[in-house]
């Protein structure tokens, strides 16, 4: 699945559409400890995290993630959205919880 295809699903809202691209979502990763995520997440992943501050953008850029998905409609800081747009990292919000997001991504064939 490509990142911009996620917008076809009403339960996923992209907060910075100008950052969208046809980059492939290669895999998924879930975690909120930034050091752990940086050390273990793979490039191209969709990252599910409840962290919403601006540092998640730095982690996503350094790991070369395809996008960030924020569960349970957790409120994003404005600074995070601005930075993510600058850096070309799409961020999605969804009412689904982290487990439901992972299960859904898995059902779409993302391993």
């Amino acid at each position: 699945m490509k990142v911009n295809e996620l917008t076809q699903y009403p339960e996923f809202t992209c907060v910075n559409e100008s950052a969208l691209s046809d980059k492939e979502i290669e895999c998924g990763y879930v975690g909120d400890l930034l050091s752990w995520v940086m050390g273990n997440a793979d490039a191209g992943c969709a990252w599910v995290t409840i962290q919403t501050h601006v540092n998640i953008v730095a982690v996503a850029v350094l790991v070369e993630m395809s996008c960030i998905i924020i569960p349970e409609l957790a409120e994003l800081e404005e600074e995070t959205v601005v930075k993510a747009t600058e850096e070309g990292i799409p961020i999605f919000q969804t009412p689904k919880n982290a487990f439901e997001i992972c299960a859904w991504l898995g059902a779409q064939g993302i391993k």
Binding site: L33, L34, S35, W36, V37, G39, T49, H53, N55
Partner: peptide, 16 residues
């Protein structure tokens, strides 16, 4: 609370 301070920074540096 920001997801830092897990005590992994220095070990991550050494491991990389």
């Amino acid at each position: 609370e920001m997801g830092f301070g897990a005590g992994m920074g220095l070990p991550n540096m050494r491991n990389n």
